[in-house]
């Protein structure tokens, strides 16, 4: 078997398709589960950032400062370091440090702050007059959040989650390299370590396809909901 030439990429007979299928499923599973949690957490954090912004109350200022600090710190830590840093925490929460479940805490903690910032920006882009109109009608804070902020920023929230999902797919591959399973793991172990370039190429192609599917779904959803 020639593992060096260009032709080595196309020796598909060396690909174990059952493993490839299993790895694809793990990648999709990690992405989808973390996206669901990141969406909820990101919107909550973004909402806290938005609502506590520019308040004159000292307590609210402190809350804003704490959340902003949390978001900024976890957004700055390189993902590969975050995984290692969180290993003891992962062991504590998930009971294991290998497999797709073990990747979830670091995936979520790294992507949620990123999405929270996108959510905050999306809320800031809503025309302030519309929020004021709702206030003038006697709306409560919750009514404004549920009936104005969320629906009026929905296209930005969805395109934000699309961007976040795509970077999450990249993170799952990185998580894979240290034992979380999925296509990244497969490309590293069965591809690189085993000098089996066809596996690396196939894993890459599938990851690219997954990214395309997420991008397409996101664009389609934005198009459907944006009535501006």
């Amino acid at each position: 078997m020639n593992s060096n030439g260009f032709a080595s990429y196309f020796q598909f007979s060396n690909v174990n398709w059952a493993n490839m299928g299993q790895a694809t499923w793990e990648t999709v599973w990690m992405t989808v589960v973390s996206i669901i949690v990141v969406t909820i957490l990101g919107i909550l954090l973004g909402l806290v950032l938005f609502e506590t912004n520019g308040s004159s109350s000292i307590l609210i200022k402190i809350l804003n400062w704490i959340v902003a600090a949390f978001v900024n710190i976890f957004r700055s830590i390189p993902f590969i370091i975050l995984i290692v840093l969180l290993l003891p925490t992962t062991q504590l929460i998930m009971g294991t440090i290998i497999g797709p479940q073990a990747a979830l805490p670091s995936l979520i903690i790294s992507a949620a702050p990123f999405y929270a910032r996108l959510v905050e920006i999306a809320f800031h882009e809503i025309d302030h007059g519309v929020i004021e109109a709702a206030e003038a009608m006697g709306a409560t804070k919750w009514q404004i959040i549920l009936k104005v902020l969320l629906p009026e920023s929905m296209p930005a929230l969805v395109s934000g989650i699309t961007v976040t999902a795509i970077s999450l797919i990249g993170y799952t591959a990185m998580a894979g390299a240290i034992g979380a399973g999925g296509l990244g793991n497969l490309a590293y172990l069965d591809g690189f370590q085993a000098s089996n370039n066809a596996v690396t190429l196939m894993a890459t192609v599938i990851i690219v396809l997954i990214v395309f599917v997420f991008q397409y779904l996101g664009d389609f959803a934005v198009k459907r909901i944006d009535k501006r």
Partner: peptide, 13 residues
């Protein structure tokens, strides 16, 4: 109290 605004302030959604 109803209020009408210069820039309408309707919800586009």
């Amino acid at each position: 109290i109803g209020m009408v605004f210069q820039h309408f302030n309707l919800l586009w959604s």
